[in-house]
């Protein structure tokens, strides 16, 4: 199957290596295999594959990861702009994408 990669160099994911304790939780929760572990520390292997879902940052007990999360959804962003709110998944009331 063809691999899907979205735009280059836009992702806000950041790793503070000093805080990382190498538990590997981020690897377990990442749906796009962004991380790998080397020398008992996690490394960002393919940053462009990140979809900013935020699972890694939320599950990082040592708070080594930060990412500005949100929905990668144009319709939701348009709705947010029209209503003057943060981008929301417009499908929130209608099930979801």
């Amino acid at each position: 199957m063809r691999k899907f990669v979205y735009l280059k160099n836009v992702v806000t994911l950041q790793l503070d290596k000093d805080k990382c304790n190498g538990c590997g939780m981020c690897i377990k929760v990442c749906p796009h295999a962004v991380f790998e572990i080397s020398n008992k520390k996690v490394e960002i292997l393919q940053k462009d594959a990140c979809m900013e879902c935020g699972a890694c940052a939320l599950n990082c007990a040592s708070e080594a990861l930060t990412v500005k999360t949100g929905v990668g959804c144009a319709a939701g962003i348009i709705e947010g702009m029209l209503k003057g709110t943060e981008p929301t998944c417009s499908c929130s009331s209608a099930g979801c994408c």
Partner: peptide
Amino acid sequence: AMNFTGASTYTSLSGVLKEM
């Protein structure tokens, strides 16, 4: 097609904002 970003499983907010 741009609206399909929401249905896809790999687009990020930053990316969609830039695209838009």
